[in-house]
Design a protein around this nucleic acid. Structure first.
Length: 525
RNA sequence: GGCCCCAUCGUCUAGUGGCCUAGGACUCCGGCCUUUCACGCCGGCAACACGGGUUCGAACCCCGUUGGGGUCACCA
């Protein structure tokens, strides 16, 4: 039975790189009919774990990555919080101590620091001298008489090699002599990550530890802990990390300012910020930016698109396949096809996946999802009046592939829902197309044509416009932009006849009248 | 700096000794279409880091160089 895990630390947000790691774990478990467990690595923080965890669990749910065991769902190995498993680690530490694989260390941080500095000055790698190591009661008593407190350190081997097989890197070797005696238990009795992690992986019967490459150099000490405790070791797989846009540095949550200098990243971010503003979302750069998964949910990306983009970051099916359904990912995922080199986060490519998935989304679903954005923007009441649905469907059809994310509906649809006398104008477009008397006169004249129409549909409007153009001997561009701005306030948008049709005759005429009046007013000043 | 990992178009990648004149995708650049925008269509630019081997033959194997990155906590 394959069991994998993802072990987030409750930080308050779900990092996109973390999702990629989690996704690979999840896919691997699913592929082998195994289980995926979520374990919370909260050995360090005590307060507000629930609060800091909520966005992470929410992110997993949104992405559709369900966990078989873990917070909220429970499981046979409860609890799934490291903060609640302290006794297990202490027991393990005790055993390590009893078997001579760990020792009490009475060195003060200052003494340790001095050793470290001396090593540095002598240009040799630091290795603790074990000067304050105590392995017998007598030694302990001696140090304690001096009033010293202790931590528990691993007594790492100082010769030989640590060799292990990694599912993505192949055979890896480390010299034991280069390893340090890592602390596994603090003076206050609490235990550290490496001990906790190894004990938990064993207790939770994790078979495959699939994690980011940054843990590769931690592996020897974890192997030492595991072996010393008599555990059967899991199979390791170290994934290349996700790198910054346009560089090979590890993508981090703390370097937002730097990423914003990347034009693509900046554009993606600004687009999201604009939507957030429209739905009156209070955002902070810390938790709302393209490195954090919430960003994509809040602005209306589709989870399948995100997942599809991420799965291809360090993995591929073959030389051609780009679009994969979740089922196809599960059916085909393998660690053997994971790349070794880090992959940069490419905003443009993510965007193109989103675009394609958006166009594939059935109209009915798109309508339902867009509706909640319009409601958040307070353009449509909640619950929605019954005429809103069909109208929105028509708008979305008219928008076609202009909608790249669900949140785009706001910018494309606001003028369809706003009262005629509340419609806002894009001033640049107004100035360009309606500041001269000529287009104003044409618009006024075309208004009469529209007023005279008895039927009001796309075909009729289209014909009316073309007849008008022919009769006036003008080019269509000379009138159509003025009509668009006159009725929608915008210089760009869906096909004009669709817009007019959706708006209806009464609104169109009222809006054109208002526009004409405004233009006249501006002529005068 | 020590240790470890990595190295194909700008980016994500295919490629496991001959099928490679190196394939696909995104981006970019032309052109077409077009009432705006967005699509769509057609075409194009663009890579095996370098140097040695091994071999009849190397993007693929070996060694070295260079470059990039990760990691060196009483963080996770």
């Amino acid at each position: 039975m394959v069991r994998t895990r993802f072990a987030p630390s409750p930080t308050g947000y779900l990092h996109i790189g973390g999702v990629r790691t989690a996704l690979f774990n999840w896919l691997f478990a699913k592929r082998h009919g195994g289980q995926f467990v979520l374990r919370i690595d909260d050995t360090d923080q005590q307060r507000n774990v629930d609060e800091a965890l909520a966005p992470i669990l929410h992110g997993f749910r949104w992405l559709g990555m369900d966990w078989d065991e873990g917070p909220e769902v429970g499981g046979p190995f409860e609890p799934y919080y490291q903060s609640q498993r302290l006794e297990r680690y202490q027991t393990a530490a005790k055993k390590l101590l009893a078997d001579g694989f760990a020792y009490y260390d009475y060195a003060t941080p200052e003494e340790l620091d001095a050793e470290r500095k001396a090593a540095e000055a002598a240009k040799r790698p630091f290795q603790y001298s074990r000067a304050y190591m105590a392995e017998t009661e007598a030694e302990r008593a001696k140090w304690e008489a001096e009033g010293r407190s202790f931590v528990v350190r691993l007594k790492m081997p100082r010769e030989g090699v640590c060799a292990f097989n990694d599912s993505v890197r192949g055979d890896v070797e480390f010299q034991w002599s280069k390893e340090n005696d890592h602390v596994i238990q603090r003076a206050d009795g609490t235990c550290l990550y490496h001990l906790a992690s190894v004990v938990d992986d064993h207790d939770l019967e994790i078979t495959h530890v699939i994690r980011a490459e940054e843990h590769l150099s931690n592996t020897p000490r974890q192997i030492f802990i595991g072996q010393s405790l008599g555990y059967e070791l899991p199979q390791y797989a170290h994934l290349p990390y996700v790198a910054e846009p346009g560089s090979k540095n590890k993508l981090s949550k703390r370097k937002l300012e730097k990423y914003l200098k990347n034009a693509d990243f900046k554009r993606l971010n600004e687009h999201g910020q604009a939507i957030a503003e429209q739905i009156k979302l209070q955002t902070s750069a810390e938790t709302f930016n393209p490195v954090i998964v919430d960003f994509y949910e809040l602005t209306g990306y589709l989870p399948e698109a995100i997942l599809n983009y991420l799965v291809l970051l360090g993995w591929s099916l073959d030389d051609k396949t780009e679009d994969l359904t979740i089922d196809e990912m599960i059916a085909n995922f393998s660690l053997e096809r994971v790349t070794k080199a880090p992959a940069s986060f490419d905003c443009k490519k993510l965007w193109s996946f989103q675009d394609r998935y958006m166009q594939k989304l059935p109209l009915k679903q798109k309508t339902a999802k867009c509706l909640s954005f319009l409601q958040a923007a307070e353009l449509v009441a909640d619950p929605a009046p019954c005429e809103a649905g069909p109208k929105l469907t028509r708008i979305i059809e008219a928008c076609g592939d202009r909608l790249k994310v669900l949140g785009d509906i706001i910018a494309y649809a606001d003028y369809f829902f706003v009262a005629d006398d509340q419609m806002k104008y894009d001033e640049k477009a107004f100035a360009k197309r309606l500041s001269d008397p000529q287009p104003q006169a044409l618009l006024a004249k075309f208004r009469q044509t529209l007023a005279a129409l008895e039927t009001w549909d796309v075909a009729t409007l289209d014909k009316a416009m073309h007849d008008f153009v022919a009769a006036e001997g003008i080019k269509i561009g000379e009138i159509i932009h003025a009509v668009r701005i006159g009725t929608t306030g915008q210089g760009v948008g869906p096909g004009l006849f669709d817009c007019l049709d959706i708006l209806g005759k009464e609104s169109c005429l009222a809006r054109i009248d208002r526009t004409l009046a405004l233009a006249a007013e501006r002529n005068a000043t």
